[in-house]
């Protein structure tokens, strides 16, 4: 069923789907949270794959991901070594720190929200209507996740590059 769904989606206008997911302008922060949670999830997942490959090289040397001929593995290992020394890689790690922290704390917020724990009870609607699910508590948790994420990035950049040390 998932494959059918993906095929149908690809038959639809894929750019429309991506625009809807990636450009939440005119909507509330809940929609921004939805988009950021998806983007951070995908980026962190890709990072984990790259991280396993890179750690394998660091621990086991060029032969650990042996793909014949050996020269290919050797070249890949040299590329990995060069990228590990590159400050751009450290900046990338800082961004990963930001995304992982945001995804984790916002994930806790979403887990609570998904079971109605941060929301108000239903009421008698009277104009102007109050959206009972847009509570200050769950919105506060979103901003908390943003704050912690930014702090994590600053801490990571400071540790890796020392940019904030005088």
């Amino acid at each position: 069923m998932i494959i059918t769904s993906i095929r149908r989606t690809s038959r639809q206008n894929l750019s429309k789907v991506l625009t809807t997911m990636l450009v939440p302008s005119r909507y509330t922060i809940e929609r921004w949270s939805y988009t950021l949670q998806r983007v951070s999830g995908v980026v962190v997942m890709l990072y984990f794959v790259a991280h396993v490959i890179e750690t394998g090289y660091v621990v086991g040397g060029p032969g650990v991901w042996y793909v014949p001929p050996y020269e290919v593995a050797q070249r890949s290992w040299e590329t990995v070594k060069a990228s590990l020394k590159d400050p751009v890689f450290d900046v990338g790690l800082g961004i990963i720190g930001l995304l992982v922290t945001f995804h984790t704390i916002n994930g806790v917020r979403l887990t609570l929200t998904h079971f109605g724990y941060t929301l108000k009870r239903p009421h008698r609607p009277e104009f102007p209507y109050e959206v009972r699910s847009f509570t200050n508590f769950q919105r506060g948790l979103f901003w908390l996740s943003i704050s912690f994420a930014v702090f994590s990035m600053i801490y990571a950049l400071d540790t890796l590059l020392g940019v904030f040390r005088a």
Binding site: P24, T28, Q37, S133, F134
Partner: peptide, 10 residues
């Protein structure tokens, strides 16, 4: 399947 984007309520 709902991910609480909240747009429906908005």
């Amino acid at each position: 399947r709902c991910h609480f984007a909240g747009s429906c309520s908005q």
